[in-house]
Nucleic acid binder design. Structure first.
Length: 221
DNA sequence: CGCGGGCCGTTTCAGGATAA
DNA sequence: TTATCCTGAAACGGCCCGCG
């Protein structure tokens, strides 16, 4: 069963969002919070929430502060932002901070349901008229994220980029295939990319730092 | 056309080794 | 001691392909 957490201080919006969610998932379990504090409280006892829908303006949060507090405590919780703010810069910032989607409040119930479906399936949902970021910014953030990878993850990514499949990567690095799979998952998470092919394409656009040879754990670098 | 099997990719969980 | 990294097993879903 799919569980949603709706964080909004306006009862009417909560109800509307709930209806949109049920349109896509009739048997969804829907939890409601009126503030970040209440959301955090709910999250302490509810470990399996599939998607949080967050209003940016709450009694105890302005701008992205509430989103960041959620993210800090529950980094793996997918959070889609629901807001009446449709400024492209705001949308942009939301996505760069790691929001799973951005749903303008002007969206119809039907579109909202479709967006929720997209987010749950792992892609990012953005307003229809949203224009993707220019390459420069993307490249910078991607390079920054690349630096978060561990050496082993960098090696796996390098082979991924060259078109190796998991089994081949495992053979090349002398690992079990399952280990490679785990690395791939972590790589995609760190790079905030949502499919292996996407990662290969995106990484192909920039230069990957050459993976270092494996050596002893004592690194005098 | 629908169904089942196999392959692939993703995710989660758990355990050991090591660094702080 | 706690946190991080690496590793592996297992379950799940999507896709394709052969079969009836």
């Amino acid at each position: 069963m799919t569980t949603f957490l709706i964080i909004d201080d306006h009862p009417l919006f909560r109800e509307a969002l709930g209806n949109a969610v049920r349109l896509a998932h009739p048997d969804a379990r829907i939890l409601e919070a009126m503030s970040i504090a209440e959301a955090l409280h709910i999250l302490t006892s509810e470990e399996s929430i599939d998607l949080a829908l967050l209003d940016l303006s709450l009694p105890d949060a302005a701008g992205f502060s509430g989103f960041l507090r959620l993210r800090e405590t529950y980094p793996r919780l997918p959070v889609a932002i629901v807001s009446s703010e449709e400024d492209q810069n705001v949308v942009h910032e939301a996505l760069s901070l790691g929001a799973a989607g951005y749903l303008p409040k002007s969206t119809s119930k039907r579109e909202l349901a479709a967006s929720i479906g997209r987010v749950l399936s792992g892609s990012i949902s953005v307003p229809r008229d949203f224009i993707a970021a220019p390459n420069a910014g993307d490249k910078k953030t991607l390079e920054a994220r690349l630096r978060e990878l561990t050496p082993q993850q960098t090696r796996v990514l390098d082979l991924m980029r060259r078109g190796f499949q998991n089994k081949q990567i495992a053979l090349e690095l002398q690992l079990a295939e399952s280990t490679v799979k785990a690395h791939v998952t972590e790589i995609l998470r760190k790079l905030r990319l949502y499919s292996r092919n996407k990662a290969v394409i995106e990484i192909g656009k920039i230069d990957l730092p050459a993976p270092r040879q494996r050596q002893s754990r004592i690194d005098h670098g």
